[in-house]
Design a protein around this nucleic acid. Structure first.
Length: 880
RNA sequence: GGGCGGUUAGCUCAGUUGGUUAGAGUACCUGCUUGACAUGCAGGGGGUCAGAGGUUCAAGUCCUCUACCGCCCACCA
């Protein structure tokens, strides 16, 4: 029963390490066996080589508080952790490391390189998981997964084979987005379009056997070397004479036809467009329609190749400059105009993406998208905030095939082999050892790997053992909610839904909760490299994980970004933690050895006891309601307001004399029982938000059993609502507020006690007489007189509250002029309101059309204002 | 080009189905070693609710338009 002394200020670091280890030892993070549907969250796997940044901190805080909340509600809970191999990003990181040693991946070879990445993986993995522990993530470490571990790799191959068999995976020669720096294909989602000020070059292509020429407009002159036609709209009369003519491509002398195509916009440029089927998606289509040659003029690094004639060996940028110069020299450059257009950039390295013709693997998405689309309509999937549903649906409507092959070394190898002897293609889950057709043993696996998201989209079931019918899969699929940022709604969320329906026949989660991004005052994402924030870990070192967590949640508007976050904002949570800590320090000595005794306390609760218990019940309801609706910021605010504004500001102040009075009396038991109840509830309500400190205090609170981490989530007790007590305390607060205001305005020294007179009518007069001691305590009075007949002192400060008059006879202290000014200001305010109310009540339309209650309320208000006005006026007159 | 958000106190945000004097935190000002907390206590100033028009007895709240900010999507040669 011995309770340790609490330090004056909360010291988080030691406390946090201790309790995390404790919870883990107790096995709280694993779902307990049991009845009832489990609560399941799968972590959006962070990039294994990344480190925990603010995005994760916020993301994990939300998931952890939901998990802890459900755990306290007695549900078996599983928050499954894991990391992502993040193909391109990780390969880039490791390549950069090699570069520091003056090496490239080719120097170490494919096998050596992949081994090197695995080594890095384990180093970084330890770092990120340690960060998660620091934050307090109550994840089930025994179920941790990695997107490249054996089980998940198996799932990836299985899915590839199944989709291939279904005809939903195919290989094709197509124009894809190519990053010349990463030297790999990208999906459409991995390209960021940036509006760029470019130029529109008007180039003249001479007509064969003629002095004339046709002028085409292009933003990319360097691709002209790959032109195999010039297209005009068939109905464009300007070009009617040119139909059937042949043009001579400058530099190369290639003869190319003028073709007619409906897709040409006659209004753009000159109405004649150069056609480069191997370097532009539109032209590619046109090339197919008109059976044009496809000539690639660049290599994988976007360096001009052997088809570029004299420009071979130049980068695409150099080639552009040289070609433009050369055109100028030959008088073939008609003009150049400024032109703003959108240019694609690599999501990973920001290099300008090249539309590039190459042989890649694709997933046919249309059939997969249909059930994902219907999920919203059928109510099987809700995306919060709801506005994101439109974004999701629109993307699905316009869905295009997914390019899944990557020319990288780090990732899941494509499970396709080709027989060297008979060229048979083998698509298989397990590595084949002989060609099923000719028996040849020389099988060559496709060198490419799969897009990272091709493993991530299986996360909701691959982590649970799929394709095996495991117990976990049966029990934990689908999960309860997906918590993530809207930036990966297409990359990940939509694709998980598709995979869920395709392979499990069910939506992987009923709710997607999208939260905002943490930004600084300039609206930039927080990052250490930008220098606009500390590392979250550093902030936790300085202020504690609880403070950081609570601050983030408190600052987050629903589904919108957190703006203006900075280190100082963590004070919000830190100060709050300190406040609660100290409130606890106040009451703890009085609770030592105390056991709450509702039976003995019953009948001895005071109004303030009943009021705080009633307010607590309201808070419990509100917090729970807000949590259910994912309004977690509001839930945090509910607790904040209750603890600080009600409990500390009022209740504990009122309770002090009773706490210091003799123990063991019925009143002493009542106040202690009340305090015990309130703290027991607050600690439980707050635990999901501030797991560490609440656990520490829970163990310091006498009579608690077990850990708060597994304590029961509070529900408002029956009979905990006390509206009459609430009303009486509300009156008290107003009266005390007014007294304090008077004292302050009259510059009364805080230590000086003053007589208080309240001219009040019944029934409030009786209430206020009962509150005698509290009014003296909180209003710093030396005496109190209450009643309808209280005489107004000659020299006094005065105020009117609910038609009751408060007098502070401060003889010798009253500055009459000051008091007059104060009263006059108040009087004028009341008059303004009185008049506006008067006008309303004289308006027949208002009386006829407004709801009865509204009119009634207005009448009451009018009456009250009238009385208040008169009293203020009299008091003003007396001042002279 | 299309779409989606937003605009309320210096800053960050609340503001339920229209109905008391538009709130909170923070910053600011004044005064306080008040029997837990100066990471605190008490008090105070500060808002033409982006603009215009409309609906209504009544608009921060509903409708229309405009301006500005932000985000997303887009095969604008």
């Amino acid at each position: 029963m011995s309770r340790s002394e609490l330090s004056k200020n909360y010291e988080p670091t030691e406390v946090e390490r201790r309790w995390y280890a404790h919870w883990q030892e107790r096995g709280y993070f694993a779902p307990r066996d049991g009845e009832g549907p489990p609560f399941v969250i799968l972590i959006p796997p962070p990039n294994v080589t990344g480190s925990l940044h603010f995005g994760h901190t916020f993301d994990h805080t939300i998931q952890d508080l939901l998990t802890r909340w459900h755990r306290m509600m007695g549900e078996p809970t599983l928050w499954l952790p894991g990391t992502d191999h993040a193909g391109i990003a990780t390969q880039n990181v490791v390549e950069k490391r090699l570069a520091e040693q003056g090496k490239t991946r080719h120097d170490v070879g494919r096998e050596g390189f992949v081994e090197e990445v695995w080594r890095w993986k384990s180093t970084y993995h330890a770092r990120i998981t340690e960060q998660m522990r620091r934050l307090g993530d109550s994840v089930d470490w025994s179920r941790e997964r990695f997107t490249m571990d054996e089980g998940l790799s198996r799932a990836v191959r299985e899915v590839f084979v199944r989709l291939h068999r279904k005809g939903l995976i195919y290989r094709g020669n197509r124009i894809i987005n190519w990053c010349p720096r990463c030297r790999t294909a990208l999906s459409d989602e991995e390209v960021n379009h940036v509006d760029t000020d470019g130029k529109l070059y008007y180039i003249q292509y001479p007509i064969k056997d003629s002095k004339k020429s046709v002028t085409v407009a292009t933003t990319r002159p360097e691709t002209m070397l790959g032109d195999t036609a010039v297209a005009v709209h068939p109905a464009d009369q300007r070009y009617a004479p040119m139909h059937g003519k042949t043009l001579v491509l400058p530099f190369l002398g290639r003869e190319i036809p003028i073709i007619l195509d409906d897709t040409v916009d006659a209004k753009f440029g000159t109405g004649a467009v150069k056609v480069t089927p191997a370097h532009d998606p539109n032209d590619f289509e046109m090339g197919k329609r008109h059976d044009l040659p496809f000539i690639t003029v660049m290599d994988e690094g976007a360096v001009m190749n052997e088809n570029a004639g004299g420009f071979q060996g130049l980068s695409r940028e150099e080639a552009r400059t040289r070609i433009v110069d050369a055109l100028k020299d030959r008088g073939l450059l008609a003009r150049v105009e400024p032109h703003r257009h959108s240019v694609g950039h690599c999501d990973r390295c920001d290099t300008v993406v090249e539309p590039y013709l190459s042989l890649q693997w694709f997933v046919k998405m249309k059939p997969l998208a249909e059930p994902a689309y219907a999920a919203i309509e059928k109510g099987e999937l809700t995306i919060l905030p709801r506005r994101w549903e439109k974004v999701y649906l629109r993307w699905l409507e316009g869905i295009r095939d997914w390019c899944i092959s990557r020319q990288l070394w780090w990732g899941h190898r494509i499970p396709v082999w080709t027989c060297a002897a008979c060229k048979e293609e083998i698509v298989a889950v397990e590595t084949p050892h002989a060609c099923p057709k000719c028996g040849g043993a020389d099988l060559v696996q496709d060198p490419d790997v799969l897009d990272t998201w091709f493993s991530s989209w299986l996360w909701p079931f691959s982590t649970l053992g799929w394709p095996e019918e495991t117990e976990d899969l049966k029990r934990f699929y689908p999960s309860s909610v997906m918590v993530t940022g809207p930036d990966i709604i297409f990359f990940w969320v939509a694709r998980m839904v598709m995979a869920g329906y395709e392979f499990m026949g069910k939506c992987p989660f009923p709710v997607v909760f999208l939260h905002g991004i943490v930004r600084d005052a300039q609206g930039r994402k927080l990052s250490k490299s930008l220098g606009n924030s500390s590392d979250p870990i550093e902030l936790m070192d300085r202020f504690g994980a609880d403070s950081l967590r609570y601050s983030l949640v408190l600052l987050s508007p629903q589904g919108a970004d957190i703006h203006g976050f900075s280190d100082e904002k963590v004070d919000l949570g830190r100060h709050f933690a300190n406040k609660l800590w100290n409130a606890f320090r106040l009451v703890q000595p009085h609770l030592d050895g105390f056991a709450p005794d509702e039976a003995k306390a019953k009948g001895h609760y005071t109004d303030e006891d009943l009021w705080i218990l009633s307010t607590l019940a309201t808070t419990v309801r509100s917090v729970t309601r807000n949590m259910r609706a994912y309004r977690i910021g509001d839930a945090a605010k509910d607790i904040y307001d209750f603890v600080w504004r009600e409990l500390c500001d009022w209740y504990l102040e009122m309770a002090k004399p009773r706490l210091y009075a003799e123990a063991g009396t019925p009143d002493a038991i009542a106040v202690r029982t009340t305090i015990h109840t309130v703290f027991g509830h607050v600690l439980r309500l707050l635990h999901p938000f501030m797991p560490f400190m609440t656990e520490e205090l829970w163990h310091a609170l006498p009579g608690t059993e077990g850990d708060v981490a597994t304590a029961e989530w509070p529900a408002p007790a029956r009979g905990s609502s006390h509206p009459e007590a609430e009303a009486r305390i509300a009156l008290l607060k107003e009266i005390v507020g007014s007294i304090r205001n008077l004292r302050s305005e009259m510059n009364v020294a805080p230590a000086r006690k003053a007589a208080i007179l309240i001219r009040a009518s019944e029934p409030d007069a009786t209430t206020l007489r009962h509150q005698h001691d509290l009014i003296l305590l909180l209003g710093k009075g030396e005496s109190l007189e209450v009643g309808p007949e209280v005489a107004k002192p000659r020299i006094t400060a005065s105020a009117v509250v609910r038609q009751h008059e408060i007098f502070l006879p401060l003889e010798g202290l009253i500055d009459v002029e000051l008091e007059r000014q104060r009263l006059r200001k108040e009087y004028e305010r009341v008059v303004r309101e009185f008049e506006s109310s008067h006008r309303k009540l004289q308006n027949d339309d208002f009386l006829a059309k407004a709801k009865k209650e509204v009119v009634e309320r207005e009448r009451e208000k009018f009456e009250a204002l009238g009385e208040t006005k008169e009293k203020l006026q009299r008091n003003l007159e007396v001042l002279g």
